[in-house]
Simulated scan of single mutants.
Amino acid sequence: MDWNRIEGNWKQAKGKLKEQWGKLTDDDLDQIAGKRDQLEGKIQERYGIEKDRIKSDVDDWCGRQTW
Rank of each mutant, 00 (worst) to 15 (best):
D59T: 00
K18F: 02
R64K: 14
K35A: 13
D52F: 00
N9A: 01
D27P: 07
E19K: 15
W61N: 05
W3D: 01
D52L: 09
K11E: 11
Q65R: 09
W10C: 04
D2P: 06
Q65F: 13
R53L: 13
G41P: 03
G48Q: 06
V58L: 06
A13H: 00
R64C: 04
L24S: 09
A13C: 02
Q12R: 15
G8L: 07
T66N: 14
N9Q: 15
L17P: 02
I54D: 00
D37S: 13
L24W: 02
I6L: 10
K16H: 15
I6E: 03
E7V: 05
G48S: 13
G63S: 09
E7F: 07
R53I: 04
W10G: 02
W21G: 14
G8E: 14
K35N: 14
K23I: 05
G63I: 13
K51W: 14
Q12T: 11
R5D: 09
G8M: 09
K23C: 03
K18C: 11
W61A: 06
N4C: 04
K55L: 10
Y47Q: 12
L24F: 04
S56Y: 01
K11P: 02
Q31D: 08
Q20Y: 05
T66K: 15
R36V: 08
T66C: 13
K23S: 13
K55E: 15
T66G: 09
I32K: 01
G15Q: 06
W67T: 02
G48V: 07
R46W: 00
R5S: 09
Q44M: 11
L17A: 01
L17K: 08
N4K: 11
W67R: 04
L17M: 11
K18L: 13
T25N: 10
E45C: 14
N4S: 13
R46P: 10
D57E: 15
R36Q: 12
T25V: 08
K18S: 11
R36G: 10
D26Y: 04
W67D: 11
G15R: 08
K18D: 10
G48E: 10
E45D: 10
Q44V: 15
G41T: 06
Q38I: 04
Y47I: 05
K42W: 02
L24E: 05
E19F: 09
R64P: 05
D27I: 10
V58K: 08
D57C: 09
I6W: 03
Q20N: 11
D27T: 15
D60L: 01
G41R: 09
A13V: 01
K16Q: 14
W3F: 06
E19R: 08
Q12Y: 11
G22M: 00
E7H: 06
D28Q: 07
L39N: 07
